[in-house]
Design a protein around this nucleic acid. Structure first.
Lengths: 338, 338
DNA sequence: CGTTAGCACTCGGCGTGGTGGAGTGCTAAC
DNA sequence: GTTAGCACTCCACCACGCCGAGTGCTAACG
């Protein structure tokens, strides 16, 4: 791959991502290669086709990048895009309003990112992270019924009604809560289940360990859910005018589990990741590209955030803006969780 | 509107909702009116057009119902659909898994309803409901910083980090939490703000009333959000093959606020409500119909649940299934909130 | 040997025109 | 009031032909 071929590939990618029209040798010569004739470009183009970087929709059409072409572009030719400072400010401001809880931050992140990327944004909380008990509380709601409040790592709260002994009053309940706290604090769901029961609990509270573990599991599952925003951007992409294709992608987006698995697999790796077309293991996403990165709260990896779009997506711009939003999300969480 | 006209209108509506093809006089005569000739049907059809119940896409085409036609159908001709008992069981079972918190129940409701109605389901929590404090908790995270956990009516939890006096330990914090609970329990955001400050609080906790009120407001706003599911069903409806129309609807669905306002306005009225095409004040929904009802937890009106689809939606079936899901949702919440 | 002009060729997009059929409205008769 | 008959309308569909963008190939040039 000599330097001129790279220039041409870059030109084809950038032209095609803008116009969504196969680009021909004349157009390239006129726009990017005034020093060369279209015939020369043609020779190069046909070699790029032979090498698998470009393809022709039909014999007398221009060229469009293949997945492999995009891959090369992303790996070696990606321009360093700079994000407009005004946009930067705008993003920071957007997060200011979301200062109360994690979910709100993630929703702002998705909204922001979908607008900036002009595609679908996906955000997930910590997947397969083990929630650990930070604090437990028992509140008497009425005789015989109490509310169990759990706070786990990540400050996520879980609440659940439980039945208790009729005769217990709030003071007694608080006493138990204190002992349960001492016993279970810092434990994961599995550890809570394995731990010995707290002695001397009232009838109805013996099974509380089960409830606590269950709550921790719930919190873990909930944070693994993938929220998405910006489907409205997808429908105006020409490649998704076909309802069948559009539906395939929507299936995946709305069945949060599938996408969650995809993101979870990639989460451990740091830095920005790009999955192009067929590189996706999920069949429904074979015509899509994913641009993903992780974000962190403090110095701890937290979740995955990314963009789903056609393979023709503007990788440079999207990557730059994703990075911006990812950082802002991390910062917002850091402020929130301290 | 004599009885025969009604039969014909009913036939046109039910044929058109199935086939999405304008229905002609021959088809009607053959399928529904063996005792009449197509010429007679033609006469009736043309009168129904004159009266505004039917329309012709073009001069030599069959008839399709107008919004007014659907309105009449819904008001006077809606058949009492019965829901298959197996489906009934299936819905009940679906809710069993969602026994931990309100949001989970609503998400199950949306998923269920979108599948059963084969359209988009929308669900909202109590709009403009006032959240009242049920329980407050203060958890020491590290010296100088504590987590405030609020549980409000509906068992929704809100958490927020606050700065506190460095020297306080968890026991002391718990003591304050207890006093704050006694003071503020059962109050709304406004009442908390109006209430006198709790005396003798540590530095940094004086403003806690503000935080509590703010949390309650957040919880109220959050519950007013509209969740939706089933966009994948929308894209295969022929009337939304046009990306422009599809996008318009998606704009509304993803901008939860707009839809929230619509639903909030209608919430007070009990029973099933149908908004057909132009009856929607929101311009983007002019080609859609909404079938809505409210659901209740215990004997208290709680939120709105409904279906968004093309005006051609199967009102009878959708209404029956909506009712089913609405009841099941209410029951699930009742169990949850007791 | 890389580059270029020239040229024949290919093929999709688009507008044209013709046809079939579904469906209508009207009229006259029952 | 109902119906058969009939002329008429108009869309959906297809075939055809043309235009033009774009190609590959060849031969010539520096």
């Amino acid at each position: 791959m000599d330097q001129r071929k790279e220039r041409i590939l870059r030109a084809v990618v950038s032209d095609y991502t803008e116009t969504v029209v196969p680009v021909g040798s004349h157009a390239l010569a006129a726009r990017y290669f005034l020093e060369l004739s279209s015939a020369t470009i043609r020779n190069e183009l046909s070699e790029l086709v032979d090498d698998g970087f470009l393809a022709q929709p039909h014999a007398s059409a221009g060229r469009i990048p293949t997945d492999q072409g995009y891959r090369y572009f992303v790996d070696f030719l990606l321009p360093q895009e700079v994000v407009d400072p005004q946009l930067r400010r705008h993003v920071r401001q957007g997060f200011e309003a979301a200062d109360h809880d994690v979910e709100a931050v993630l929703e702002v992140a998705a909204a922001m990112l979908s607008r900036l990327s002009e595609n679908v944004a996906v955000v997930t909380g910590p997947a397969n992270a083990t929630s650990r008990l930070r604090h437990l509380d028992l509140v008497l709601i009425r005789p015989g019924q109490a509310l169990m409040v759990e706070v786990a790592t990540g400050n996520a709260a879980f609440q659940r009604l439980i039945e208790i002994d009729l005769l217990v009053d709030q003071d007694e309940l608080s006493g138990w809560a204190k002992r349960l706290n001492e016993m279970y604090r810092g434990m994961s769901a599995e550890e809570v289940e394995a731990a010995p029961m707290v002695a001397g609990l009232a009838p109805g509270l013996q099974a509380l360990g089960q409830d606590i573990a269950r709550g921790l599991r719930q919190l873990a599952t909930r944070s693994a859910l993938v929220i998405h925003d910006g489907v409205r951007n997808l429908v105006r992409q020409p490649e998704f005018e076909d309802p069948v294709r559009l539906r395939a992608v929507l299936e995946v987006l709305e069945a949060q589990r599938i996408l969650g698995d995809v993101l979870a697999q990639l989460a451990p790796q740091a830095g920005m990741q790009v999955l192009i077309g067929h590189e996706n293991t999920v069949a429904e996403l074979r015509e899509c590209s994913l641009v993903l990165t992780s974000y962190q709260a403090g110095d701890q990896l937290w979740g995955t955030i990314g963009v789903v779009g056609p393979t023709r997506i503007r990788y440079g711009q999207v990557a730059a803006r994703l990075q911006l939003v990812s950082r802002a999300t991390g910062d917002a969480l850091t402020r929130l969780l301290a």
